Amino acid sequence: MINLIKNEWMKIFRRPGTMVMIIILILSLTLVGIVIKSQQKNIDIQQDKNWQQILQEENNALKQQMVKSQNNTEKQYFKKEIAINDYRIKHDMPPKEKYSVWSFVKDSSQLIMLAGVFIIIVSAGIVASEFNWGTIKLLLIRPINRSKILLAKYFTVLLFAILMLAIMFVFSGILGAILFGLPDRAVPYLNYYNGHVTEQNIVVHLLIYYGLSSIDTIMLVTMAFMISAVFRNSSLAIGLSLFLLFTGGQFTALLAMKFDWAKYLLFANTDLMQYFEGTPLVEGMTIPFSITILIIYFALFMFLAFYVFKKRDVAA
């Protein structure tokens, strides 16, 4: 299996396009850093000396809105904001902090979607290209189980995804330290879950944030891999996956406004950060529910990919 993965890894990096993708990602991060640096005067807002009083007044307003609101999702949002504000007041933690390397690392995570585009392109072509070039016959004449061959290709795609995310995290950290510097003191992230506020190390939070933010990309990469294996068409896999990457979340949000069954759709569950930094898309959704739905979709994609690939006749 390891040799198969090494072979697939070498195939990916023999293509000039792979290095071009990495360079574009690095240049994009650099451009974002320069733009934010140029606007830093607008970002670094002076801390108000009476911030405790301001937060208390904000809480009073939020409590009034919570009483008037009939929407349970809105009420959960108000509860979260009130709890975090109370925690800040109690533990003397001002809400406004100087923009630093960690702020930039989190802001630059928006480019995960760009990395997702590149990972989808690799995933969509890793199987289909073998059929297009006719090299699939040479691959399958080896005394190796077809499932191992396909699994090695999928593991290679996942490794490439990890590489792209690691490049983003490390480079944004280095660039952020150069452009914005390190914070004056260690400031934890205030994590709200299930009615409780806890302090979390900022680096740990960012690693979790990157991981959870990339779930929708990984699911679409898996879908692209499945389409590539089933239809042997990389263009279809890329086109459909990119279309869903950019529009799937918006369509799902629109459906969720009117229909409760939207919670069973893939994109209603890919954003697990909604349980920590927002509110569930549909009332009643929980983390275990979303994880279960994701596992079902993942199992379906992988089953179709392996079943069709094992049954396909490539003798012709």
Rank of each mutant, 00 (worst) to 15 (best):
F13E: 00
T156F: 00
M257F: 06
W51T: 02
F309D: 05
K11V: 02
D313V: 13
L31W: 06
S213M: 10
A305N: 03
I144E: 03
E58Y: 03
H205W: 10
S100Q: 07
T73F: 11
Q56R: 06
E57S: 13
Y210T: 06
I23R: 07
F118K: 01
N59Q: 12
D184G: 13
P183K: 13
I287P: 05
M168W: 04
M164W: 01
G125C: 00
M19E: 00
E74D: 11
N85Y: 03
M113Y: 09
K137L: 13
Q47N: 14
K311Y: 12
I144M: 02
I119A: 08
V282D: 02
I120N: 01
L159H: 09
N71F: 09
M1H: 02
L175C: 01
F155I: 03
L206M: 07
L179M: 05
I144G: 00
Q40E: 11
D184A: 15
I43F: 15
P94K: 12
L244S: 02
L190Q: 08
T217E: 08
I24A: 14
L111Q: 04
A315Q: 08
I112H: 05
T286G: 08
K68Y: 13
V122I: 11
P280Y: 05
E199K: 09
Q46M: 14
I26K: 04
V127F: 02
F246L: 12
I119G: 06
I178H: 04
L304E: 03
E81P: 11
S100N: 08
E74C: 09
K106I: 04
G134M: 07
F276P: 06
G181L: 04
I167Y: 01
E283K: 12
I121G: 06
S235C: 10
T247W: 10
S241P: 07
Y193L: 05
S228Y: 04
A237F: 00
F171S: 09
R146E: 10
N3W: 06
N194K: 11
E277I: 13
S109H: 03
I167D: 03
S290A: 15
Y87F: 14
P95G: 15
G195F: 03
L138A: 11
M21V: 04
Y275H: 14
M273P: 12
S38Q: 14
D313N: 14
T217S: 10
A229P: 05
T279A: 15
S234V: 05
I22S: 00
V35I: 14
A186G: 06
G33Q: 01
G195E: 03
F13T: 09
N201F: 08
I84C: 10
I296M: 06
S235K: 10
S234W: 05
F131K: 14
G284Q: 03
D313S: 13
V127M: 05
I24L: 15
M219I: 08
I89A: 05
I141Y: 06
R232W: 05
K98V: 14
N233I: 07
Y77C: 03
W261C: 02
M1E: 03
L212F: 15
Y189R: 05
F289I: 03
